[in-house]
Nucleic acid binder design. Structure first.
Length: 264
DNA sequence: TTCCATGTTCCGCA
DNA sequence: TTGCGGAACATGGA
């Protein structure tokens, strides 16, 4: 689930539930979930702190600690959050549990262990170290800046849009959606795209991601014209009615409409 | 039982 | 040398 719109929903969830409560105790289930931080350092920074604010960059969620530094959450493919009363059993696959002084907890769950929990002194430095590209919804990422990101690159457009060091936030599902709505074949070589097509991809990316954030990335709430709710081979294309096809692009399953997204 | 999955990282090759 | 594509990783549900 967790691509940019999902992480945006997690951010809203934390903002609505978990800010400004003192963390009495934190519980780490499996240290493999940790990034470049020791369990001791993480827990020392969490204990007694409050989450003061949150920020998102691509698929990363940052929670600012009022005593300094940031709790950094990445959700992998199966990560999630749950806020509940401490008398309730934490959900299955809970890897990190923050117990607040108001009797509630925030649980970070990660079934497949591909997510990561980290601590960062400085958010911008963390983003720079990870070599993340600009957030796909960043205000200062305009059409021209977007075109610059792709300029001179080799490879297929789908691979580039999924590359977090080029532009941060999209994964397999939303890239398919963007390219479907833009009418671009996923395997199109970047150098074969003209300026008009790049602008179309940019505008479509912004529109799709904004809409998905607005709908809290809940598939059922997305417009019927979207590919996402019908991401199934041989289901009818919402635009032309022809069959949606499946293929492999850089090892990822890709859904597309051969008629609406002709090969360049 | 085998295969597949919305994630990133690492290695080999061009 | 840079960077692209594929494999590997971990786990459980279909």
């Amino acid at each position: 689930m967790p691509e940019l719109p999902d992480v945006a929903a997690f951010k809203d969830y934390v903002d609505a539930s978990s800010l400004h409560h003192r963390i009495r105790h934190s519980r780490l289930t499996d240290r493999r979930i940790l990034g470049e931080v020791t369990p001791q350092k993480l827990q020392a920074n969490l204990a007694g702190s409050r989450l003061a604010s949150t920020a998102r960059h691509g698929k990363f969620l940052f929670a600012e600690l009022d005593r300094g530094g940031w709790l950094v959450l990445h959700f992998g493919m199966t990560g999630g959050l749950a806020y509940a009363k401490q008398e309730d059993e934490p959900p299955r696959f809970t890897q990190l549990l923050l117990e607040f002084d108001n009797g509630y907890y925030l649980a970070y769950t990660c079934q497949r262990m591909l997510g990561r929990v980290s601590y960062a002194e400085d958010r911008e430095a963390f983003i720079a170290e990870r070599e993340l590209g600009p957030d796909a919804l960043a205000e200062d990422l305009d059409g021209e800046a977007f075109a610059d990101l792709l300029a001179g690159r080799r490879g297929m457009i789908k691979s580039a849009l999924m590359n977090q060091s080029i532009v941060a936030g999209m994964g397999n599902v939303y890239v398919d959606e963007v390219l479907f709505q833009a009418g671009i074949h996923p395997k199109t070589p970047i150098h074969r795209l003209d300026g008009k097509q790049i602008r179309t991809i940019y505008r479509t990316m912004r529109r799709v991601l904004h809409k998905a954030v607005e709908k809290e990335s809940i598939i059922e709430r997305l417009p019927a014209s979207y590919l996402l709710p019908r991401r199934d081979t041989d289901r009818p294309c919402p635009r032309c009615g022809g069959p949606i096809r499946q293929m492999d692009v850089s090892g990822r399953t890709t859904h597309y409409c051969p008629d609406c997204q002709p090969e360049g």
